[in-house]
């Protein structure tokens, strides 16, 4: 049996909804912990108090730069992890913490919150508020294959993760405006509608087939852009959807692992 990878969850200024999403893989979560990953750090689930060495660090929340501990935590996380994943929209894009403006007791100086990509290099984004359990699961399985799999598995995992790595390079801001700027204004929108489905606050409707965003509702989570087939569409991987789904389902089948 191949080695398990060391998985950690680093909580910064987030709401723990991202972590609940991790746990919302239910039996699949137990299976991941049984066979693929040791949870070496996670304040909410384990008693480890200091950040250890990790293969994959799932970072939830943005960083308050007026809070010394948070800044140290994210630097420490980068130093000690092979792969840093921004888990959820706060870590990726700032999300609601983009609206923060300080001035509130008991720490009125806590004013500036930055997505982790503004402070460290981030390898993979899992956008979403909260991120879907299924996407977290897919990334966990693919990260395992990338680090511990055979050559074919490594190649597949690399191809699968590429767009999520590209998202991490693209931007640290997310908004409905991304659809306007990078999809509609670029002549790419096809009115498929999935942006509206993905929006966690129902800020998007379709008027005569094209998205209308209510900017007074948008929480800047960046999900709509990520879900849009015209943001990224890696046909080489997506056309393999049936086989990849089988691989993931196989990896998470209940019972002892056979390899």
């Amino acid at each position: 049996m191949a080695n398990k990878i060391k998985l950690g969850h680093v909580h910064l200024s987030g709401c723990t909804g991202c972590l609940v999403s991790v746990a919302d893989n239910y039996q699949g979560f137990l299976k991941i912990l049984d066979d693929y990953a040791d949870l070496v750090y996670c304040l909410t689930l384990a008693d480890v108090r200091r950040i250890p060495e990790m293969d994959v660090a799932l970072v939830e929340g943005s960083v308050c730069i007026q809070n010394h501990e948070s800044v140290e935590d994210i630097k420490e996380t980068r130093k000690k992890s092979r792969i840093v994943v921004a888990l959820g929209s706060c870590a990726s894009y700032g999300n609601i913490t983009r609206f923060c403006r300080g001035g509130q007791h008991n720490q009125p100086q806590h004013e500036s919150y930055l997505p982790i990509g503004d402070l460290i290099d981030v390898d993979v984004y899992i956008p979403g508020c909260p991120p879907s359990p299924e996407l977290i699961r897919n990334v966990a399985v693919m990260a395992y294959l990338l680090l511990e799999g055979n050559e074919d598995q490594k190649a597949l995992a690399g191809r699968y993760l590429k767009p999520l790595m590209d998202l991490a390079k693209r931007s640290t801001t997310g908004c409905f405006c991304d659809l306007m700027n990078d999809v509609i204004n670029q002549g790419l929108c096809i009115g498929c509608g999935i942006c509206a489905a993905s929006c966690p606050v129902r800020a998007i409707t379709h008027e005569f087939g094209k998205p209308q965003g209510d900017l007074n509702l948008c929480i800047k989570c960046g999900s709509c852009y990520g879900a849009c087939p015209r943001s990224f569409f890696n046909s080489d991987v997506i056309s393999e959807f049936e086989a990849i789904n089988e691989i993931i389902a196989g990896a998470l089948k209940e019972g002892e692992r056979d390899d």
């Binding site: 299924e134 993905s198 997506i238």
Partner: peptide
Amino acid sequence: QAVRKAQLYPINMRDVP
């Protein structure tokens, strides 16, 4: 294409895949 992308990369598409 949108559906399959959501199945493999479910961004805020919990339970859908």
